[in-house]
Structures are given as C-alpha cells and as structure tokens.
Design a protein around this nucleic acid. Structure first.
Lengths: 106, 106
DNA sequence: ATTTTGCGCAACCGATCGGCTTCGCATATA
DNA sequence: TATATGCGAAGCCGATCGGTTGCGCAAAAT
C-alpha cells in the first residue's frame, strides 16, 4: 500500500470524484451515476481516497455520504512550493546576470 | 500509455528527480548516483517525464542533460484552482449564512 | 585502432492497479 | 415478517508498473 496523495490523484476517475465531492457530499450510488463503472469500483476508489485522508465518510442510515476534506489538497500545493521557490531563485540569479551585464556595459 | 502529468508525479522517485532537476540539469548517470536503482531504471523514468513534456533533453557529446520544463508544473496548479474556487464559493455561502443569522438576531 | 564510457532499447518478472462478479450484512420498505 | 436497497469485502483477471539484466551504438579516451 503506497497510498500517498499523489498516487491517489494519479487516477482520472479519482480526480473526477474529488471534483464532484468538492461541490457536495455524495453517496457511492450517486457518484456511480456519473461514471460508466460499477458502484463497487467507485467504492474501491472511495476507500483509497479515504485512506489518503482526502475524504470523510458520514453514515446516515444505510447511506454513506463522502465529503471532501479540502484541506488535504494543500499538501499538493506545499509540494509545488518547492518549485515556485526554485523558480524565484532562478529569476533572482537571472536578475544578477542582467545586473552584471548592465554594469559591464558602463 | 496514460502518461499524463498526474501519473508522472505519482511515483516518488520521479518526484525526487523533478526536484533534483529543478536545481540544475543533469545526466542520467549523475541522477542515478542519488538513488539506489540502476541507471537504466532512471532512464525509464526520464522517458516518462519527457513524454509528459516535463523534461527537455539536451545532447552534449555522448552525454544527455535533462532539464526541467518548469512551466509544465503549472498544469497541476491549474487543476488545484478548481478547488480553490469551490472553497471560495463555500466561504461565500458561509458568509451568507452568517449574514442571515446576524439579521435574524435583530 | 582498441578500449572505456554514457546512453537507450528490449525482454523479462513479480507486484500492483482498476475493472469485474459474487457475497453477506444492515437498514429501509412492503 | 418478508423483500428491496445501499453498502463494503473478497476474489478473480488482464494490463500496467517499476525494477532487473543484457544487449548495441556512438563518443571519448587510451
């Protein structure tokens, strides 16, 4: 079980489920209506997403509403931050180069 | 071949490679030194990342320097935007609720 | 001219993935 | 009480994944 958030969003069906649940909590059957796969397969996806802490199930009678834990999505953002920082740094270095060139011209 | 960017970053080794290459372009051998897997496996990862347009190979004699096409990372950001927007909307709705409650108190 | 080095490709292999079907259980509903 | 419904768990299966080894080729070094 690798089961990290990146592996979770690797599957296009799971990404679509996340988008659906971002709008409103839904039951497995309701979700399955939006796809061409069986409810049981949806359940498998829901299990994976839940294990990654991306979803929170809420039992209501015999139904289970899965809701998105949107905060968890921040983890992806945090990972992307590395690149934003490195990019900034690259621009800074580029600035330095430009600055040096400018001074040499003088 | 699914080969989209989300499948590309699903693998932890590939994510680490991206971070390495964010700092500076490197050859397969140089990259492999940072991992405990064979150079050929690294090459496989590099092929996948290149096919996703995340890397650009630059031949230099018999060496190939792979460099990160950092712009491609924005695609992930764009996907995340959906959730940011939905979150904003949720806060807006929450504001509406709070506003209504406030008025009822009067 | 020969050997070493850097690389990608192809074939192989066990593990995992993402569907499927079948089942059992708990909760409505008749 | 009997039946229908909503769900998860388990087992199956073909496809893909991520590693390996063993090439062959071109460039560099000897």
């Amino acid at each position: 079980m690798r089961r990290d958030i990146f592996q979770a969003i690797a599957d296009p069906t799971r990404r679509a489920i996340l988008v659906l649940l971002a709008v409103q909590a839904m039951t497995p059957n309701a979700i399955a209506e939006h796809f061409e796969i069986k409810r049981q397969s949806i359940s498998k996806h829901l299990r994976i997403l839940s294990e990654c802490d991306l979803l929170k199930p809420r039992q209501e009678g015999r139904e289970i509403f899965y809701e998105l834990k949107i905060d968890k999505m921040k983890e992806i953002d945090i990972w992307l931050d590395q690149f934003r920082k490195i990019m900034e740094q690259s621009f800074k270095q580029l600035d330095d180069v430009l600055y040096t060139l400018k001074n040499k011209k003088k």
